[in-house]
């Protein structure tokens, strides 16, 4: 479904990604782990079209995405849930969710997805009239994930959903991602919680200083010595 080949990316003169190659197959749940500043978010931003790659290729369903702007990638079926959430703070929860379905023209389908999302996050239904800016951190995160699902994406890119969340909410969020995979969505998750990520994903890549240093099935990586030493602290 998604393939990156020899991707280079930079902010101005500062190169962040070097020769990154990875692929995500249909229905897969792939993790991208690594320390702070390794370029994980940059990778997602490049796929989402918010950043134009400096070199290499991004292929989505066989089409080159290199010059495709962010709004087009959403229309093509990629949904990106950013680390800073980018919620519409002066809109209600419901309005935010409907904005998420901007690319879905059929109102009935919008409402169907809305029901699905409310079922996944009952808290959001309780708060549907509340202004997004007045919600707690955990609720905002849920709203951002729910909003990202409203466009019925084929590929969901999730950036650090656990950041700043209470432990029981992290479990909730991870479980909802797993449920999305079961519903047929392909997912790519960027995380710093290595253990939890490796437990939930099928495969994972390790990104360090802008380069992929390791890849493999999550069940194998979790046993790997480097991973254990560097990330799990066992």
């Amino acid at each position: 479904m998604l393939e990156l080949t020899n991707l280079d990316a930079s902010y101005g003169f500062l190169q962040v990604l070097w020769d990154v190659s990875l692929h995500v197959d249909d229905g897969e749940f792939v993790g991208l782990i690594g320390p702070n500043g390794a370029g994980k978010s940059t990778t997602l931003k490049t796929i989402a079209g918010l950043l134009t790659p400096k070199g290499g290729k991004v292929l989505f369903k066989g089409k080159s995405m290199n010059a495709v702007p962010a709004h087009r990638t959403t229309q093509m079926g990629i949904s990106y849930i950013s680390e800073d959430l980018n919620l519409f703070v002066d809109m209600s929860v419901r309005e935010n969710l409907l904005m998420g379905a901007y690319t879905v023209k059929d109102p009935e389908r919008q409402l169907e997805t809305l029901d699905f999302v409310f079922e996944l996050f009952p808290r959001l239904e309780e708060r549907k009239g509340q202004r997004a800016g007045t919600m707690s951190g955990g609720e905002r995160k849920m709203l951002a994930i729910a909003r990202g699902m409203m466009s019925n994406p084929e590929l969901l890119l999730v950036d650090e959903p656990s950041l700043g969340l209470a432990p029981h909410l992290v479990t909730d969020v991870f479980n909802s991602l797993k449920r999305l995979q079961e519903a047929g969505v392909t997912l790519m998750l960027v995380e710093q919680r290595v253990n939890a990520t490796l437990e939930i994903t099928d495969r994972a890549y390790v990104l360090e200083q802008g380069k992929i240093v390791m890849e493999g099935p999550s069940s194998e990586l979790i046993e790997n010595k480097h991973i254990k030493d560097a990330y799990l602290g066992i």
């Binding site: 918010l50 959403t74 980018n86 309005e95 901007y102």
Partner: peptide
Amino acid sequence: TRTGRAIRAVSQDEVGAQMMGINL
């Protein structure tokens, strides 16, 4: 309206609006 809401979305969060598929 859908387009009107999109205008408000851009005014509140330009990047977020692009992520929703809104063409600036």
